[in-house]
Design a binder for these strands. Structure first.
Length: 430
RNA sequence: GGGGGGUUUCCCGAGCGGUCAAAGGGGUCAGACUGUAAAUCUGAUGGCUUAGCCUUCGCAGGUUCGAAUCCUGCACCCCCCA
């Protein structure tokens, strides 16, 4: 039923540059194979990779054949695009580890069993590693005029700067990526490459190479980079840590919260770029946001959609339950297993079995043990300033002693400082 | 090689021999407001058994009743002249 992928991408604002006027009709005339490359710089993808992943997913839903290329070979070299400095090379071993982790996550976004147009996953190490240096120079390098290479933004910006420069290795990067495209054309009939706007130079290099070596007509599209209204890349928390797709690195709760807290100015872009919501729904969210931004329907919808895709229904449910408790009232009437599920990634400290008996445990000491305060003095200040909560109930007495009456469940006391910094005290069983 | 300046609590930076745990700014933390926002405002920001005590001002000594402030030596940094 859906057929015009190009029109869909256009209204979402996902077309930044395209190599050919006729791309729209070319795409609509029959299913095509297309690819996007991913850098294996870590063993998990992060939020920054969601945009290209969703692009592949969109193409697949519109009946095309997506190919996800993991750069096991190119990752060894380092793409100079968008980088101001020479990159640190990754070891072969860590690359292999990273590629494996990334492959696993791709399966969440793409359907590799789809009848007719299954997604394909390739690793350019499988064909690149076989090349000899001489072969590569004769067959591939011969087709690259250095003056053209020097004119590419990614290279020029590095050469023109007196303080950076570029190594021969990184300079050669575009040859590898260009050859990937030709290889995929040969083996998978792939005629279209997509990428972020910083990939334009690499994509056109591949198109040129395809023409020279195979007389093929190849296509390229770039999409905008996912930036916030301040011009910063989206996908980092206030603390500057990346938001990852793997639940081990970023829990579903934190992932959900990240999107829930996207500023009004950016949420519309995120909905268009990252979700599969229909145009009607997104525009009605725009309207509701204009009317009453405080409702945050857009943010909620965004967080739900993305958490659902990345962490599944169970992950979304857990994130929502946790959010309700974290930002709700007093915590009571829960049992241990419920609390464990709600606070999976909250640090916890185990108390000795009898710690809450008799006189109990001083609140200040408890805060220090739990890691919520660096010293008793700091803990005291927090309490005096009204920033300490036990089971979400504010405590104002620095001399308060926790006893078994303060347990939120069988064995757990929930401590909190500030708005949302939690820690658990867990009573050891005998 | 010669001359001069510097090293302060997370960062920058002020600091008369006593009244300096050390101005001010930034950052951070907490509170109020709010939409789990932005902006704004308020408070806190070495440790402790917290109206008191203890340990900090490059390092090691010394002078003094008393030193971040004076003297000596050491380490590192910067500038000027060769």
């Amino acid at each position: 039923m859906p057929n015009d992928i190009f029109a869909d991408l256009t209204w979402r604002g996902l077309i930044y540059q395209a190599t050919d006027e006729a791309l729209q009709s070319w795409l609509n005339s029959q299913p095509r194979s297309l690819y996007i490359g991913f850098d294996p710089t870590a063993d998990s993808l992060h939020v920054g990779s969601m945009l290209p992943l969703m692009l592949l997913r969109r193409f697949q839903k519109f009946g095309h054949r997506p190919i996800a290329l993991v750069g096991g070979a190119t990752g060894m070299i380092g793409d100079p695009s968008g980088k101001s400095e020479e990159r640190q090379l990754l070891s072969v071993e860590s690359l292999r580890h990273n590629v494996a982790g990334i492959e696993r996550q791709m399966r969440v976004f793409l359907d590799f069993e789809a009848a007719g147009n299954p997604a394909t996953l390739v690793n350019n190490f499988t064909w690149m590693s076989g090349f000899s240096y001489l072969e590569f120079l004769r067959d591939i390098g011969k087709n690259f005029p250095v003056n053209v290479m020097l004119a590419k933004d990614s290279v020029r910006s590095r050469i023109e700067r007196a303080d950076s420069g570029i190594s021969y290795t990184e300079f050669s990067y575009m040859l590898l990526q260009a050859y990937d495209f030709v290889h995929l054309f040969d083996h998978y009939g792939c005629e279209l490459q997509l990428g972020g706007s910083d990939q334009w130079g690499n994509i056109t290099a591949g198109i040129d190479l395809g023409r020279r070596m195979r007389s093929a007509k190849l296509y390229g599209i770039t999409c905008p980079l996912l930036m916030d209204s301040e011009g910063e890349k989206i996908g980092k928390t206030a603390k500057g840590t990346k938001v990852w797709l793997s639940p081990e690195r970023t829990s579903p709760y934190l992932f959900y919260q990240y999107w829930y807290n996207i500023p009004d100015a950016d949420v519309g872009t995120c909905l268009r770029y990252l979700t599969e919501l229909s145009r009607e729904e997104i525009e009605s969210l725009d309207a509701s946001r204009q009317q009453d931004a405080g409702q945050r329907n857009s943010q909620r919808r965004l967080a739900e959609e993305l958490t659902q895709i990345v962490h599944g229904a169970a992950g979304l449910a857990a994130a929502r339950r946790a959010s309700e408790v974290f930002f709700g009232g007093e915590i009571s009437g829960l049992n241990d297993s419920q609390l464990n599920e709600i606070f999976p990634d909250v640090p916890n400290h185990v108390l000795q079995a009898g710690a809450l008996q008799g006189d109990g445990l001083g609140l200040l000491d408890a805060l220090v043990m739990a890691g919520l305060a660096g010293s008793r003095g700091e803990a005291r200040r927090l309490v005096q300033q009204g920033g300490v909560y036990v089971n979400n109930r504010r405590m104002t007495d620095p001399d308060y002693r926790l006893t078994s009456a303060d347990l939120a469940s069988q064995t757990v006391v929930v401590l909190r400082t500030g708005k949302k910094k939690y820690a658990l005290l867990r009573l050891a069983s005998e």
